[in-house]
Structure formats: structure tokens, C-alpha cells
Amino acid sequence: MAFKTSRTEAGITVVRVEGQLVVGNRQELKELVQDAVGHGDRKFLLDFTPTAYIDSSGLGALVSISKRVREAGGDLRLAGLNEDLRSLFELTKLDTLFPIAGTAAEALAGF
């Protein structure tokens, strides 16, 4: 299972991305968040602490997910990116599109 979902007492849906977010599993994450939005969830934290790799398809999926959440009036934040993954966001300037926290705890405190 690449994605583990939990919900905090404050009503924040936390998705831990384990291993990789790539062309082979990006659709699964999109559908997971889409379903949660459909069930009324509006606050999302994507935790990349256990993530080794994100490819450009995964980056595109995050853009798509962010749009969906914002269209529903929600809030999507990212956390836990390692130095290499953070560099992908900086190179593509996606760090200007997403609120990115150093750790999941920091991100949760920011909602």
C-alpha cells in the first residue's frame, strides 16, 4: 500500500506517501483525495516523510489534486520532503504553488 490515510481530531486528512509517487500509482492518490473531498473532507496534509521518489507525473498529480481541493474550498499542504525531493519542487517552481512545511507536525500546526 503506497498511501496510508488517517484523520486527526481537528478533521485534517493525513495521507502518508510511502515509497514512490510515480506514473504507476499517481491515479490512486488522485482518486483517494477525490473520494475524501466527495465525503466532505476539506483539509489535507500529504506527508512525504516516507517517500523516496516523486516523478514528473507525480508532480502533475499533486497539481491536479491541489486544484480539486481548492475548488471545493479546501486546503492542501505538503510536508516531510527530503532534500532531493524538495529540489524537484524548487526546480519546477512548484514550491510557489504549495504550502510546504518541514515536518508533518509543523504542517498540522499551520492549519
Partner: peptide, 22 residues
């Protein structure tokens, strides 16, 4: 390039850009 303002929100087209940068 996907980094120009009107393409930042695109959902594809970053692969070749990353290759060129890395």
C-alpha cells in the same frame, strides 16, 4: 518550460524540463 507563470498549474510537461536541469 513549465516554469513560466501560465504553465505553473499544468498537470503534465515537466519530465523533459527536469532532464535538462539535472
Amino acid at each position: 518550460p513549465p516554469t513560466v507563470e501560465d504553465r505553473l498549474g499544468a498537470t503534465r510537461g515537466r519530465g523533459l524540463f527536469l532532464i535538462r536541469r539535472l
